[in-house]
Each structure stands twice: as C-alpha cells, then as structure tokens.
Amino acid sequence: MIKILHYALGLPPLNTEGLAKQPDDIMIRQVANGNEVSLVYLGNISADRKLKIKKNKSFNNIKVYEINNPISATLLNGEYDPKISLKHMGFNIYSDFLKAIKVNIIHIHTLVNLDEEFISAANKIGIKIIFTSHDYLGICSKVKFINSGVETCTDYGNGEKCVVCNR
C-alpha cells in the first residue's frame, strides 16, 4: 500500500471541470487499487489570514484536508498580491502536517496557489513529488491562455505580450 497525498483545487460539486475531475478520477482509481489516498486543497480566507490546515469529511474513501488562508488567489486573474505569496509563513505548518499524515508521495496537479514552503517541507522530509500539469499556470500566470481577458492567446510575442496582459 502506498500513501499518496494529492494537491489539487478541490472536489465535486464545487469543482467539476477538467482541472478538478482528472485528479478525482486518479484518486478514486488509486483507492480502488488499495492505496491510502488523501487530498489537500485550497480553502477559505478568514480575517486573521493565519495559515491552517484542517481535516474535512472524507470523500469516496479519500481523506480530505483544507488549507485555510492559502497564499493569494491566482486562478484566471493572475497574481493578486505578490507580497503575500512571497511571504514565508508556512514551513512549520506544512512540515507538521506532512509528518502527521506520513505520506510516501505527493502528486501535485496544479501550481495554482501552491506555496513554495509546502514543497520545501516535503523535500526536507524526503517525500517524493510528482507533478502533472492540468493547466497552463507554469507558462501563463492567468492559467488559461486568455489574452487580456477576452480571447484565446495565440501570439504572445516571446512573452512581451504577457507583460502587457498581466499589467
């Protein structure tokens, strides 16, 4: 049995499109194959902005955890506040969480709001990481290759037009 933690945007019914559906299908298959599967996803933001990870109700025999007060939201609109994203605030929280759930491997499905300290904590503990891209965030900060919010981006001018789009 392998203990696998997935990092994704969430679960149905809140997230139902490809970016949520693909990890869901993978996790359900892994459970059927006898693995212990968990999901950690981005949760709510509260007034105190204090990073917390809470356990939620299981879904299809998948343990579910929610990151409350994650780094700033990036989905579709680019970076909300880079100062928050670059602020080091979670290494010990992520490290304690990963040690407590004792996973063998982490499967990352998106870079959306992925805190670098989550990766650092996993690396320090020695947890293997797999990344499967289901979106364009690695090459487009607006995730979907939508040019200035209205049309599909087909000519990005070697990144020069990205600067204008993200201004």
Rank of each mutant, 00 (worst) to 15 (best):
N113Y: 09
R167C: 10
R167A: 14
K57P: 04
I139S: 13
I67K: 01
N147A: 05
L86P: 00
A121R: 02
I62L: 10
F145G: 01
G10W: 06
Y7I: 01
L5I: 03
L137S: 09
T16A: 10
S148P: 00
S95I: 00
Y41R: 08
V103Q: 05
D25H: 07
K87L: 14
I105R: 06
V164M: 13
D25G: 08
Y156L: 12
S46R: 12
H134P: 01
K21Q: 12
L5M: 06
C162D: 00
P23K: 03
M1L: 13
S141K: 13
G78P: 00
I4L: 14
H109P: 00
T132G: 08
T154Q: 12
H134R: 08
L111V: 10
A47V: 05
M1T: 13
N61M: 11
D155V: 05
D24C: 11
I26S: 07
H88Q: 12
I26G: 01
L137P: 01
K50H: 09
N33K: 14
K57M: 12
I101S: 06
N158M: 15
P82W: 02
I4H: 03
N113L: 12
I45S: 05
V112E: 05
V103T: 12
I119Q: 08
D155N: 13
K142Q: 05
I93A: 05
K99L: 13
P70Y: 14
L111C: 07
N44I: 04
P13Y: 10
A122Y: 06
K52C: 07
S58K: 15
I127V: 13
I130H: 06
E17V: 07
I2H: 11
P70E: 12
I130W: 07
N77H: 10
S58L: 08
V150M: 05
S38H: 07
E116D: 14
K50D: 07
Y156R: 11
G159H: 04
I129E: 00
L114T: 02
N68F: 10
R49M: 09
P82D: 00
N33M: 10
K54H: 12
I93C: 06
K63W: 11
P70H: 11
E79K: 05
C153N: 02
I67M: 05
G157E: 15
S85C: 03
V150H: 11
P70T: 11
G34I: 03
Q30E: 15
G43T: 03
P70Q: 13
A20C: 14
V37P: 00
H107I: 06
L114I: 07
